[in-house]
Simulated scan of single mutants.
Amino acid sequence: MARKLPLDELSTVIARIQGLLLTEEKVDRAVQLLARAIKDSVTGATGAGVSILDSRGRRTSSASTDQTVTRADALQYDLGQGPCLTAWATEETVAVRDIATDPRWPDWTAAVKDLPIRSVISTPLLAGQECIGALKIYSDHAGAFGEDAARVLELFAGPTATLLANIQSSEAPHRISEALAASLHSRDLVNQACGILMQRHCLTADMALAELMRRARRQNSTLGQISADLLAGIPAVSD
């Protein structure tokens, strides 16, 4: 079976969630679907989770792909420290190459030392001006994640935050917002651009996404804009 393009899994999950009655009681089911999609889409991830937090950093809803992630996350909330809470508080992506040598959260590090976790990336869920939670991926190997893995996780964060904000909104429980539609359109552009690079240069899906990321960094642009520029140069009729 051919491997899906890097963001296809997210699009599939979003489509499934759009079929749900988007009310607050569906949040737990939605975040569980998203956690599984994230794990399946990030190379090297052995576990993933989604957490929704209130204004004081307290967990209001969460999902994880396995008990290791559940335990590691629970310890963060109990101890009040860890990469997920830092990503939420700073509104920036947090990467941990090796938990055993990272000094930032000594209590949490000590508490998870016997768990099969060595690498972590966590990125905030930003819905407009509000940070509503964080996504996170774990690996049982040190140095498992590079910059590209962080970028892929960040690609999930935009539509995920918008979707969850819609689910929690009492004003529009049945609608996916225009912001979510725009986010998904950007992801579709990236997928199409990846497909073009794969066909042109015989690249894998991961290699194509990495190439787009390199171009975006080199030109100080966004993945969406780089993808749109690439697509604009393609003839309307295929060769």
Rank of each mutant, 00 (worst) to 15 (best):
L212M: 01
R200E: 04
L34W: 04
E91D: 02
T93V: 13
G146A: 04
D107A: 12
S55P: 03
A157G: 07
K136S: 12
V31E: 02
S61F: 02
V27H: 00
F156H: 12
Q219H: 11
H174C: 08
A37C: 01
E25L: 00
V42K: 01
L126D: 12
S64R: 11
V190Q: 08
R97H: 13
M213A: 14
C84H: 11
A150F: 09
S183T: 14
T160R: 01
D98P: 07
E171Y: 03
L115M: 05
C202T: 09
E25D: 12
R16E: 08
S177I: 10
A193S: 15
A149M: 00
T23H: 01
A179F: 06
H185L: 13
S51G: 05
G44E: 10
L153Q: 00
M198E: 14
T109L: 07
E25S: 02
E25P: 00
T123F: 09
E171M: 06
T162G: 02
V120K: 01
W108H: 12
A165E: 11
S169A: 03
T101H: 08
A144V: 04
A95V: 14
T70V: 11
T109V: 13
T109C: 12
A144D: 07
A210R: 12
A165R: 03
G195C: 01
D206C: 07
E211M: 10
G44H: 14
V42A: 03
K136I: 01
L203W: 08
S238V: 03
A87W: 14
S55M: 05
L53F: 10
S61T: 14
I99K: 02
L135S: 07
